[in-house]
Structures are given as C-alpha cells and as structure tokens.
Design a protein around this nucleic acid. Structure first.
Length: 419
DNA sequence: TCTGGGGTCCTAGGACCC
DNA sequence: TCTGGGGTCCTAGGACCC
C-alpha cells in the first residue's frame, strides 16, 4: 500500500505558523513578481479567488475582505518542507518526495499495520511538530492514493484527514464519486476529449478498452487506467538527478534592446551553472528562449528558442553564459517587446567523466575558479561575485511587496517570544 | 500598467545510415 | 505507371504535474 501525504494549502500554512492570528482569516500567497495567486486558505477559496488568478484583478477584493496577502518566501517554504519530510521519513519503511508539499510513503510488507491508525498518527504528529496540517490517502497504487487523499481532504470533518482504499467496494465507490478531470494525470485537454464521449467519472474512464484509451491518450492513458483499476504502473521516480535545469523570469517591464536582455540571460546562465555544480554534473547543451507578452493580443508575438550544443561538457558559469549569449544573438530580432526569457541546460554527464573531446575542452582554470566563487557566494550571499556580462548595476528588482521574514533560516529573522 | 517558475514524459516527423 | 525496408537519433511540440 502507498500513502500520499499532502500538506494543506502549503504556502499559506507556512505563513500561518508564524502568524497564528491569521488562522481563520482569508490568506493568499502570490507567485514571483507578485503575479498570480498560487496558494489559498479555505476562506480565500470561499471568496471565489481562483487558483492562478492574476493578483491585480483581485486587489479590491483583497482590501474589502481583509485578505492577508504574501509574496512567495521560498527559503521559508523549503525549510518547512524539509522539516515535514524528515518526520514523514521516520513513519514508513520507504518514502519518495514528490514535490515541495507532497510525498508518497511505501508500506509494502507492512501487512499487519493498522493504516487508518498510522494515518491518524501522521495527521496528529506533523502539525504538532511543525505547525503544518496534512491529509493522508492510502491505496494500492499511487493514482488511487491521490484519489484517496482527495476524499480525505474533501470530507475532512468525516474522515479526520485520512482515507484508506483497501477494498473493491471502496475503490469503485471512490471512482464513481471522482470526476474524471480530477484524476491525477488527466488535464484539461484530455478531460475535454473524454467529455465528448460522455466519460464523466473516473469509473467511466476505467470501463473503456485499452485500445480506445491508447488512441485518445497514448500509453500514458493506458497506464493511468490500470493504476485506477488497482495495478501499480508508476515506478519510483529517482528525483535526485535532474535531467534539465532551468532559470527563467518574466521581466518587470518590456525589453526591446539586445544588451539589456543579454545581461539578464547571462545571470540566468550563471544561476543554472551553479545549480548544476551542486549536482556535480556538467551539461553538453543549453536552450535559450525569448517571449513577448502572450497576454497582449494587440502586440506582435514572437517566441523563439534555440538549442546550442557545447563543444565540450562544462559546468563553468563563464562558459555556459558565453554559449547562452551566442544562442540569444541568434534568436533576437529588433522590433519586438520582450517580456520573458530563460536558459535551460540539458544533456548532463557526471563531472568526473572528464575530457572526451580531443581538440576542445572546458578551460581547466575554471574549475578552481568556480569552487572559489561558490564558496564566496555561499558565505557572503548570492551573486556577490558576478561576471562582467551580468547586470552590474542591477536596476531591476523582483516585485515582492509583502514578503514575510525568513523565520527559520536567517538568524536576525528569528521570532522573539516574550514571557 | 499588471497576469509565475520548474519539471517530466510521449509522439510525430525529419535527417541520416546501410 | 513504376521509385524498398529497416534502423537510429534528434527535435519540436503537446500534455501533464506541482
């Protein structure tokens, strides 16, 4: 049996740990640049604030209804997530962290364990130790565990935050209740296609033939169907090693000139390289992309991208920034207003694998240089050492108007308790 | 005026090889 | 009129997830 443990309204819950007076009030957390709503308390959901709603559209509502608004505080959420995951890791034989606020626990071999009781234990212990409320769903496959978690959350008063699918009756009851678009792995597009064939619930979906499912949703759909029938089809994901690393940002204003975009792209490349070194990998290729504002229907759209292959594997910020700049030069066109850009590095090989190219290789001097740069930046703060190609004067700044303190990761932000 | 960021997997089609 | 068959690799784009 698998358990899916999911933190409730995670970012909002993190903020509330340190602001208990917000407990029964509507609270939202915004994305980077204070752009969209990405986490909502139950009270905020009740006000009709949708997921991913642009913040500016709700400014009036926020004020009128006294909604507490926060900018994203990733150092805080990351640290709170670690605390939750560390505790959960001790409560099952095996765990698989799926995202910042979710993990699968594997109870294979625990045939005599009372899962319901273990679930209750989790729902009690995690909030007691971390302040973060969670719900737990148990089932024989991951997709069904997701469904069980949905039920646990939806009927929290009745379930106490725990639901176990361990019989055929419960499985069928759950699938008949679940709308097909709520199934993990069925998105908006597939749901629309399925609706055309009168497939409304997860149960309806499982009644279709493999061949038909494959024809509309490819092998992914077939796997999903069997997961819902109770046969595990989704393997353990090895998340430790990433296959791509991306740094992308929307700009606070439109850019029209190559030099200003070039500075930002250099910074994205340097940031990718740093993440890559932390993984002890090198990349063999990178992609640069540019985007105009896709929300502006009145503007000419241009969303080019290009893949640049490196002549040698590298994780040097200097080299990666150099090839990113070359890619950018290829795709940049005058006459457009650019709103977003990004660098994605890919095709990784391990650091130790070393030189494979006879004629061209990564500059060996960069290795000790990067070690030194990482050391300094880690000790003195991000981006203290930069390339000349980066934005030295940095006249841009991410909008973060309602940022909470880093309560758990910065000494001067530690909360002061008065007796 | 404003509307995020970072991932994975799958498929179709083109280029190329013998 | 007719113009093979069987591979691999790469890329772009779609769909989905949090």
């Amino acid at each position: 049996m698998y358990a899916l443990v999911d933190c409730n309204n995670f970012y909002v819950s993190c903020e509330r740990v340190f602001r208990p007076e917000l407990r029964n009030r509507p609270v939202v957390v915004l994305s980077n640049n204070d752009g969209c709503v990405v986490s909502r308390s139950e009270e905020a959901k009740a006000l009709g604030i949708g997921m991913a709603a642009p913040a500016y559209q709700h400014e009036l509502l926020f004020r009128q209804q006294g909604v507490a608004v926060f900018s994203s505080n990733y150092p805080l959420y990351g640290d709170m997530s670690n605390r939750v995951m560390n505790l959960l890791g001790e409560m099952a034989p095996d765990m698989e962290i799926y995202s910042i606020d979710e993990c699968f626990l594997n109870f294979t071999g625990c045939d005599y364990l009372d899962l319901e009781a273990q679930g209750k234990n989790i729902c009690q212990k995690i909030p007691q130790y971390t302040g973060i409320p969670v719900c737990v769903g148990f089932a024989p496959t991951k997709t069904l565990a997701k469904a069980a978690n949905n039920i646990a959350k939806k009927f929290k008063d009745k379930t106490g935050g725990v639901y176990v699918i361990d019989t055929e009756e419960k499985r069928i009851k759950a699938l008949r209740w679940m709308k097909v678009d709520a199934v993990w792995g069925i998105g908006r597009r597939s749901a629309k296609t399925l609706a055309k064939f009168e497939i409304k619930t997860a149960y309806d979906f499982t009644q279709q033939s493999d061949a038909w499912v494959r024809s509309v949703m490819s092998v992914t759909g077939v796997r999903l169907k069997h997961e819902l029938l109770g046969t595990p089809m989704i393997e353990r994901e090895e998340l430790e090693v990433r296959k791509n690393i991306a740094t992308t940002r929307s700009f606070e204003k439109n850019y029209t000139e190559l030099p200003e975009i070039s500075e930002r792209v250099a910074t994205f490349a340097v940031s990718c390289a740093e993440k890559l070194r932390r993984q002890h990998m090198q990349c063999n290729a990178l992609m640069v992309f540019l985007m105009t504002n896709r929300h502006r229907k009145d503007q000419q759209q241009y969303n080019p991208s290009t893949v640049v292959r490196l002549p040698f594997a590298s994780n040097s910020g200097i080299e990666i920034a150099h090839y990113a700049a070359e890619g950018l030069k290829q795709i940049f066109r005058e006459g457009y207003s650019y709103k977003k850009a990004g660098v994605i590095i890919m095709d990784f090989t391990p650091e130790e694998e070393g030189q494979v190219n006879l004629f061209e290789n990564s500059d060996p001097r960069h290795k000790p240089l990067m070690v030194a740069v990482d050391k300094i930046n880690r000790a003195l703060g991000e981006q203290k050492i930069k390339l000349g190609a980066q934005d030295m004067q940095q006249d841009w700044k991410m909008r973060q108007e309602s940022l909470s303190p880093r309560y758990t990761t910065r000494l001067k932000d530690i909360i002061v308790a008065k007796v």
